[in-house]
Nucleic acid binder design. Sequence first.
DNA 1: GATGAAAGGCAGTGAAA
DNA 2: TTTCACTGCCTTTCATC
Lengths: 157, 157
Amino acid sequence: MHNAELDSIDLAILAALQRDARLPNKDLAERLGVAPSTALERVRALRRRGIITGFRASVDVAKLGRPLQALLALRVRPHTSQLVDPLRSFVLSLPETITLFHVAGAEDFLVHVAVADAEHLHRLCLERFLVRPEIVHLQTTLIFKSEDQPVQRPSEM
Amino acid sequence: MHNAELDSIDLAILAALQRDARLPNKDLAERLGVAPSTALERVRALRRRGIITGFRASVDVAKLGRPLQALLALRVRPHTSQLVDPLRSFVLSLPETITLFHVAGAEDFLVHVAVADAEHLHRLCLERFLVRPEIVHLQTTLIFKSEDQPVQRPSEM
DNA sequence: GATGAAAGGCAGTGAAA
DNA sequence: TTTCACTGCCTTTCATC
């Protein structure tokens, strides 16, 4: 499964494009010390191999009026795919959802959400989640801050 | 703080560029039904306003040899900035770290990590986290699957 | 703020090493 | 697999509305 034959040029491409996906190919090539056509082909190969899965604009949810983030831990009973799959789709269809984690342990899902304020969070829990009978438990954890990091090295650490 | 005066064109730009940050400006303009120069200026304005924070390549960590993901819940005592700030920097410097959540509640941090295998996870917990005296508790939750979602609407829901 | 024309520059192709 | 050279098209600017 790991297609991890990456040389230092590939790693440099991943680092550069994780920082700026719109870096012009000419500039990228210059940084790598290779010809532009080489850089172009390397990037395409990384996409073909599924190592680069896409290029996405990052949006500041706080600036869009949702400055409050939380993690909702859901326990679902019975935990059958008949109930779990529709719940997954439902959670992903909510505009408040940023990430859905399907986890092992006492809880079954963790939902990272962004909301306008505490009142909005309260309504979300009561009117969207707890109205569903398969959700037998919900625990809310407020997020003070979340910080992302680029993916760094291939495997061995 | 919320700069959220976004018309339907801005929202369409956010939707399009979250799906594909490299969508050619010409194509973007065509979708929006405006001139290329207009689309260009709108995107630049969204960046200036801090609504678009950047353009990033998405990388498949599993393909880089780290197919196993987990959430590590850390309790830190005493919870003073003198201890917390260096810990934050440390966690963000680990190549295994994807996201660091600073949270309210029984735990103080949640760390989303990607590792090669269970053995690697075990070593990470014992040799990187639990060796630090300020970490008084660590709970590991395996992630079966995580699904991201683009940011959708501005505020009211 | 949005438009359209004009100009410069870049992406992307194909042949060769 | 990388490089070089070339063509076409896109990005970007600016004057205008």
